[in-house]
Nucleic acid binder design. Sequence first.
DNA 1: CAACAGATTTCGGTATACCAAAAATCGGAT
DNA 2: ATCCGATTTTTGGTATACCGAAATCTGTTG
Lengths: 227, 227
Amino acid sequence: MSEKNLAEEIANQLRRDILRGKLLPGASIKERDNAADMGVSRTPLREAIRILAKEGLIELRPARSPIVSTPSVRQISDEVEVLLAVEKLSGELACARATEADIEAIAEIVDDMAARFDTADPLDMFETDMSFHSAIAKAAHNEPLAEIHRTFLARLWRARFLSAIQSRNRERVIDHHSRIVEALRARDRSAVRTTISVHLDNLARDILDVVKREVAETSQAQATGTK
Amino acid sequence: MSEKNLAEEIANQLRRDILRGKLLPGASIKERDNAADMGVSRTPLREAIRILAKEGLIELRPARSPIVSTPSVRQISDEVEVLLAVEKLSGELACARATEADIEAIAEIVDDMAARFDTADPLDMFETDMSFHSAIAKAAHNEPLAEIHRTFLARLWRARFLSAIQSRNRERVIDHHSRIVEALRARDRSAVRTTISVHLDNLARDILDVVKREVAETSQAQATGTK
DNA sequence: CAACAGATTTCGGTATACCAAAAATCGGAT
DNA sequence: ATCCGATTTTTGGTATACCGAAATCTGTTG
């Protein structure tokens, strides 16, 4: 990876641990302990924590250890709403600004995904899916917008992952992706907006289903445990 | 102000200095010097710098002093594009979610602005204008979205300010604001989107005009100075 | 046994000290 | 006088030390 400063490297490490589920929501990140574990001092670790806090992956609490965010259904729903809007806008902008190479790169991702349809394991498939969406954000050629996209993709990573590995709508996903690429090739703004909307509305529903179920299970487990 | 931790307080102070033009674009923020000036140590100042960097007001350079951002026209144009989309979305969401109190608060701001039309000084007027837009973002009841709105409002603060104090379109602004409130009261999504679009498209044009002019003047001044 | 108060520990906030890399400066050689 | 290189200085990055507030533990008391 080879980042320039320690803090970012630590942030990357922690981010991965959070996204991969190694650090579960609610886990506390103590400055001293984690710094000792990773063999660095508190200063850069502290900085890394702030970075992730700004990204929304960690929650800062006054006079308490920071914890891995435990987003409510409402929060996730809000975040999905933003992500959806960002991707729609990206798609529209991409119609006007994407280079041919940009679009070909996107198309290639879809082809790749389709080709590996039955062989690929869910995690591979998932990462390819993510890269498809990132590629669209990139093709809009608006850096601040792409930055927002990255942030919200990260915040929703876990939820999307949980959703992706269990919903078996892979055909539908590939079909949607193909339609989006088609619309991009035609540089048809309204078609892009529509196809992306359809795709993401489905995604939003799946994500919220999974999250709601998880919340229900958690509170049930707590109830049994308490009793 | 009374914030909880020093770093945020420092960040607020620096942010004000930047937005008010006390620290001009390109000015360097040295950790040691500024820390000494403000009577604090480097640690919290450093943290404050990172906060402002994430907000886009300061640029971090590897192995160099951070400097106050000197956004290119392109960057500003990209940011305006994002702000525009965020406000449109906020307006639409507000139609569905704003409480009556939210809408009344917005309407009050417009009335206030209209009442002080000829007396108020430009800076007051400007801040009222900003609060109008913030109120809409708030009325959408989507915290992550509001956060983005705050960030981009801050990034564009200086440019908007420069634009506001010289363009004498106050009547037009108040008219636009009134129409937006009207649409919100009717909870008419498409009307809100349209009215906000019209308003912000004008704003975007004004801002870009001012920025382009500033860039032109700067490079001209440099040319004369160099000779 | 419960409850409260004081002692102790834990932990984040802040200050300071040290280091390495990069920039600027200055002196000598051409 | 100029250009190149060594040295000094500047500056951000990192480590560590200290502090105070808050949480937790504990012993005593009603």
